[in-house]
C-alpha cells in the first residue's frame, strides 16, 4: 500500500485540519459524479478508493474518528425501459461501446432513452457533436429528466466539474442550469450523504 500521507499530498507533521482539508479537496476532485459517463470513470473510482483508504489509515493511526467519504453511487437510474436498455447501460459502463451500439440499433422504438444512450456512446468515443445532438433530442422528448439535462450540460462545455481552479467564467443559460448548480452545491455541502 502507498504511503497514506503521500496519497493525500500532506506531510507527516500536518495537523488534523490540514489533513481533512487536503482530503476534502481530493474528494471534490475525484468524486464519482465528476466522472459520470467518462470513459475513465473506473480509474477515478480506484483513485477515490485509494484516497478513502489513506484517510482512514491516517485517522485510525492518530486515534481520531474516520468520517471518510461514503460513496453515494445510486447504481444508475432504473425504470426507463426494458431489460434491453439495462443491458446497453451495462455495456456502456464496461466500455464495450460497439456491443452497446449494436444492441441499441436493434431497438424498434426510438424514445428519449434511446437517444440518451446513443449520446452516451458517442460521448465516450469523444464524438462530442453527435453526442450533443442526441442529448438535445432526448431532452426535447422528455424535458424534465435531470439525467438527460445533466448530460447535455456536460457536453455543452460550460460548467466543468473537473476544474479545480476557476479558469473560466461561463454564464448560465437556463433555469435548469441554476437548479443543477444548486443540486451540486447541496452535494458538496453534505446533502448527498
Amino acid at each position: 500500500m502507498k504511503d497514506p500521507y503521500e496519497v493525500l499530498g500532506v506531510s507527516r507533521t500536518a495537523s488534523d485540519s490540514e489533513i481533512k482539508s487536503a482530503y476534502r479537496e481530493l474528494v471534490k476532485k475525484y468524486h464519482p459524479d465528476n466522472y459520470a459517463n467518462n470513459p475513465l470513470a473506473d480509474l477515478a473510482s480506484e483513485k477515490m478508493k485509494e484516497i478513502n483508504e489513506a484517510y482512514d489509515a491516517i485517522t485510525k493511526s492518530r486515534g481520531s474518528g474516520s468520517g471518510g467519504y461514503q460513496s453515494s453511487q445510486s447504481g444508475g437510474y432504473q425504470g426507463y425501459g426494458g431489460s434491453g436498455y439495462a443491458q446497453v447501460r451495462s455495456y456502456i459502463n464496461a466500455n464495450q461501446l460497439d456491443a452497446a451500439e449494436s444492441l441499441l440499433n436493434t431497438a424498434a422504438n426510438r424514445d428519449a432513452e434511446w437517444y440518451y444512450l446513443k449520446g452516451q456512446i458517442a460521448y465516450r468515443r469523444g464524438w462530442l457533436d453527435e453526442a450533443r445532438q442526441h442529448y438535445q433530442t432526448a431532452c426535447a422528448m422528455v424535458p424534465n429528466n435531470y439525467e438527460y439535462q445533466n448530460a447535455l450540460r456536460t457536453v455543452q462545455g460550460g460548467y466543468s466539474p473537473y476544474r479545480q481552479t476557476n479558469y473560466q467564467n461561463n454564464g448560465m443559460d437556463t433555469a435548469c442550469d441554476i437548479c443543477n448548480t444548486l443540486l451540486c452545491l447541496n452535494c458538496l455541502c453534505g446533502g448527498c450523504r
Binding site: 465528476n34 466522472y35 467518462n38 475513465l40 477515478a44 469523444g126 462530442l128 457533436d129 450533443r132 456536460t154 457536453v155 455543452q156 462545455g157 460550460g158 466543468s160 473537473y162 476544474r163 473560466q168
Partner: peptide
C-alpha cells in the same frame, strides 16, 4: 465543443 474537449482532457 472545444471547451468540452478541454474539460475531458483536464479530467
Amino acid at each position: 465543443l472545444t471547451d468540452s474537449s478541454v474539460n475531458l482532457a483536464g479530467a
